[in-house]
Design a protein around this nucleic acid. Structure first.
Lengths: 231, 231
DNA sequence: ATACGTATTATGTCTACTCATAAGGAGCCA
DNA sequence: TGGCTCCTTATGAGTAGACATAATACGTAT
């Protein structure tokens, strides 16, 4: 029982009029005051509804000019980036994790520029495999800045995957993520049931905290992997 | 000159306290009323600030229980999906487009299930290439539902790319998008400077409008292409 | 001890009003 | 034809107060 008009109702009706109704691309919407009158609610309610439609990228709002339906909506896809464990368990599979390699090395030249580190810096290098129902799902090749996170030198990554340790240790970092297709290396072929040279879906992720590089990771997926989103 | 506390200031301070300050993962934030008192503003202002922090996936809000900092933030990457033209022109390159093939065919079996179409349905099939500064950038393999969009049968796609025609014709559709790595086909090799079998970054996109399949597209990128986002 | 109803409390949302700010447009003057 | 000021208008954002709703806490009856 909500006799009052809610901003969700207003929003739904506005969306309907844009997608199915009289407000086509480029058209000018009535002012907030007029809409408030029409929907018999306060201007604040209309404002909130319009602000959320704006966040969807479907309208363009300008002071004095008014609110206009975009000619082409600003398309944006949102991908949730879950922990591998959650991703695998969400498919109903049993998660297992194995540490393949663990070493402390001076920073390789290829990562020096990427992580903005000096020549004497050291990185903890980890290679591990994530399995779903016993089948390899993802190969993780991770480098952790030992200068920024000295605890990483001594941590035992055999029990807990580095990703889970990191989100618990540095929860709110800045992240740059990129997707690409590459040819399978011998390492990827060995651990992911690929043949060398096969196409591999890779995610590269760099994270920073307070201007310091924390970790750089390459995630390689099993053959046929897809990332999907709706919008 | 804004002597009043704005919701942005409140939001910034809350974010600071979560990321650098005293409110670590799992901790309970003061109630909106207490925060309003502390920041000398109204509850509505605090509410708006907290609502936006919630949208970032950093806190968990529950009636009666209060607001809690998440143990691990809900990571979400947002990708803007621009028109190829805009993508290429944003790099400072000159955009050119070429139509390679245009035909009307009965729906292939592989697409019948995907687009939920009957056996007598027909699709407009288009293959085109998008160039940046004369070099091939993206190969577009598109199928348009001729039943839902009869205008597509007669439209001349030599002048305008199908994507631009479609966003002008059916601007607000539902989209499913997925990314994957595949091996280059002969067609991709011919038009994108790949060798057959090379890894190709592919984007597949299906769009629907009012429950009807509109179009299904496979976008294949030139060698080395990356999709990048920050969050 | 367990089950159930009730009080409490924090968030969710709406109203009504106020002032701020960006920007289009009219009018005026050189 | 400019270029300038000033008025008007639509959104942006704040205040205070009210009621709704979900969920926990607690006290009482069985």
């Amino acid at each position: 029982m909500t006799p009052r008009t809610t901003f969700r109702e207003v929003q739904a009706e506005i969306l309907r009029r844009i997608t199915h109704g009289p407000w086509g691309p480029g058209s000018l919407l009535p002012s907030e005051i007029d809409l408030a009158q029409e929907f018999a609610c306060s201007r604040a309610t209309v404002n909130r509804a319009l602000r959320e439609v704006d966040a969807l990228g479907m309208i363009d709002r300008r002071r004095k000019s008014g609110t206009r339906v975009r000619m082409a909506p600003v398309r944006q896809a949102r991908f949730e980036i879950p922990l591998v464990r959650a991703e695998i368990e969400a498919m109903g599979a049993t998660y297992r994790y194995a540490l393949v390699r663990r070493e402390v090395l001076p920073t390789p030249d290829s990562l020096r520029a990427l992580m903005n580190l000096g020549p004497e810096s050291q990185l903890v290098h980890l290679i591990c495999v994530h399995y779903g129902d016993g089948a390899p799902y993802q190969l993780e090749d991770r480098w952790i800045n030992a200068g920024a996170l000295p605890q990483a030198r001594d941590h035992d990554f055999a029990a807990q995957s580095p990703n889970e340790w990191l989100v618990a240790t540095v929860p709110f970092s800045e992240v740059e993520i990129s997707f690409q297709a590459t040819a399978a290396t011998d390492l990827e072929a060995t651990h992911l049931n690929h043949n060398p040279g096969d196409p591999v879906f890779q995610v590269k992720r760099s994270t920073w905290w307070q201007g310091q590089a924390i970790t750089h990771t390459t995630l390689s997926y099993r053959p046929g992997h897809r990332m999907t989103a709706r919008y």
